[in-house]
Structures are given as structure tokens and as C-alpha cells.
Amino acid sequence: MGKVSIGSLVLESGQVLERVELAYERCGNPSGPVILVCHALTGDQHAVGSEENPGWWSGLAGPGKALDSAEFQIITFNVLGGCNGSTGPLSLNPVTGKTYRSDFPLLTIKDMVHAEYLALKKLGIAKLKAVIGGSLGGMKALQWGALYPYFTESIIPLAVTPSFSGYALAFNHLAIQAIENDPVFRNGYYEGSSDFKGFHLARTVGMISYRSGKLFNDRFGRSANEKKFEVEAYLDYQGQKLARRFDANSYLILLKAMNSHDVEQQRISVPIFSVSYTNDLLYPADLMIPWLEEQEEAKWKIVDTDFGHDGFLTEFGKWSGAVREFLHEDQRVRAAR
């Protein structure tokens, strides 16, 4: 674990962020090929974690896993604009001496990738074996292939589409409106993220879109206690849980950055292996595959799951082997050349 300073960063908007830092996890084989892991909306840099505190992707990354830490060096950054150590709305603005809060500038996915490229250079990394991530992380993986094809040998975008669809934009709009229209939000100068219902509601909107109706129906049905249905209690709990650990201004910054995602017209030269998941309301395979068919070198897999969009965070046995195979197939091809 650590932080890396990259100095000033010129954003796509033309604004300049000063004294930018990215928090990161770096583990695995120190002399092995480097894999960059990109987390999703509310994730963080603790992808692999430890035996005592497994990371959020420990089912995919770690000793003996598809991203084998005995073979690869694995790096994960807390995204720019996040709230787990990287420069974001909770950071001190060096120009004003005050916390940014809602004064933090809007970001794009490209801004995040540019920041991580500079951070990797600072860490002494000259080449990436692959960039892998799901959802927001998948957006970043695609942008890595578009912006830095000379720096990464391949990309593995999961649970993502080449652009953020109208349906996905609609869900983000609901979440943004729920936060910004809550009087307790106070234009970003709230007392604490856990204090206002708008943030709770924004999270529940997301939770409903991340998993399939079948999963909700099978898990909850119409079960209830004397006060509410179990599904209501579950969603309320998830909203409160996120609000205790995540900053609402960061949530807004990242949602709006996701809205900017669009590589629809890009032709990416590095090998691509993409995984889509059935019942993914936000990033359906039928929006991804036609784009992949136009790329120079792309393969894909569709995983049958009731988990929908959250498929990239679970049921690793269904798809991690394909990721492992792609990483080693790419090695064999390069060796043959």
C-alpha cells in the first residue's frame, strides 16, 4: 500500500489539478509482468488484499488465481476523484487551503487513465501485460487500449459497453437527482455522507440495476417481517452501508465521469478479451459484441448468470479460466513472433 504523487494534471476540460496523488495496492511477483486492475464505482485499491483481509477481487487475483500473484505483479489504484486516499473531493485544495468538496472539477474516464499512466511511470513501470476491470473499471480498460496501446499489451474489459447507453444514463440521472435534490446535500457542503436519505436512495437505485429480477425474486420473494418486506430492508441497509464508507461528492464525480464514456468510434490495436454477463441491464452483450467484431483482434465470452451486472464480482468459476487462458495465450503468441 502506498501513495504516488504525479504533480499537476491537466484535465480534458482544460482545468488543472495541482499536487495530485493516487493511492495504490502493489503486490505479487516484483519481477513479473505487470497487470493493472481497475475497480468499479464504489471499489478501492484493495483488490487482492491479504489472507487476513481479502480484497474485493480476491476470487480472481491472488496466489494461484487467474491473476496469479506468484506469476504477475498486480497494481490497483484508487481512482482519481475517489475517496480512499487518491485526490478527490475530500482532498485539500492546495490553491485555497480548503477541502474541495463540490468545487472538485468534473472528470472524464480519460482523465483517470492519464493520471494512472503518470503514476505508473513514477513507480518505474515501463510496460503493462494487461489492464483489466469491470464496469467503471472496464471503461478505463477500454480507454487504456485507445490512449496507450504502446504501454499495455492487452486489455480485458468486463461488464461494459463501448459507450454508456441511454438506459444506463437514465439510472445515473436518477441517482444524481436523488443526491443533489436532497436539502441535506447543501450543494455539496453536507455534514456527512451518512446523514442524508438522497444518497441512500441513489445507492438503492444502483443496487436494483446491478442484479437481475430473477435473483431478487428468488432471494426475497414477498418475505416480510412486521415492519417491511425483506427486499425493502435489504435495500435500506445497502444504502446506509455505502453512505457510511463512501463520500457523496465522490459518488457524483464518478457517476458523471461514467456518463462521459464513449469509445464507440475507436479502433483499438491491442488484443482485447471481453466478458459480458446475461441479465446485465446496464451493459448488455448485444451492445458490446458488434463493436468487438470491428476491432483488430478481439475475443469475448458471455457468461450465463442471474447476478447480471454484478457477475464480474462473483461466480469466478464460470469465467476466470477464460481470463487465465487469454493471458497465457497472449504470451504464447508473442513468443512465437
Rank of each mutant, 00 (worst) to 15 (best):
E191V: 12
V263D: 12
G14S: 09
I289W: 05
Q143V: 08
L118H: 11
I35F: 12
E329F: 08
G213N: 11
N279H: 15
P284V: 03
L254D: 03
L327E: 04
L90C: 09
K127R: 11
G62D: 12
K121G: 10
G133R: 07
F220T: 11
G32D: 06
D306F: 06
E296C: 05
G239K: 03
I208R: 12
K299Y: 09
A119E: 13
S5M: 06
L242F: 14
S13I: 08
T152N: 01
F151N: 00
R244T: 11
G85E: 13
Q15W: 10
K318E: 14
D310P: 12
G82S: 06
F307V: 08
A141G: 01
T96Y: 10
Q73L: 05
G137D: 08
G64F: 10
K318V: 07
L242E: 01
S86G: 10
D236Y: 12
F199R: 01
E116N: 05
S5H: 09
H309P: 08
A70Y: 09
E325Q: 15
E232T: 14
V323P: 00
F151I: 01
Q295V: 11
L107T: 03
G213Q: 10
K228A: 15
G206V: 06
V37C: 04
Y190T: 04
V20I: 15
L107S: 08
L255Y: 04
G321P: 03
F151D: 02
G82L: 08
L292T: 09
Y277L: 07
E52R: 02
P157M: 10
A40H: 07
P89I: 08
K65H: 11
D330C: 06
D44C: 09
T314K: 13
A126Q: 11
G81L: 07
D330Q: 15
A335C: 05
V333N: 07
K256D: 06
K227I: 10
F216P: 06
I132N: 01
V303G: 10
P149Q: 00
E226T: 07
A178N: 01
P162C: 09
A47F: 06
F72G: 00
D310Y: 14
L67G: 02
A178L: 04
W291R: 00
A61C: 14
K110Y: 14
I253P: 00
I132W: 02
L174Q: 11
L327S: 12
N93K: 04
P183V: 11
L327K: 00
R211C: 03
Y283M: 14
S163W: 08
L123K: 03
S163Q: 13
R337E: 15
I268T: 07
T278P: 01
Y167M: 13
L174D: 00
L287A: 10
I289C: 05
V79K: 07
I75H: 02
G192R: 08
L158E: 05
I208S: 05
G124H: 02
I179L: 11
E329Y: 14
G43A: 03
R211P: 03
T204L: 08
I179N: 05
F164M: 07
H114W: 10
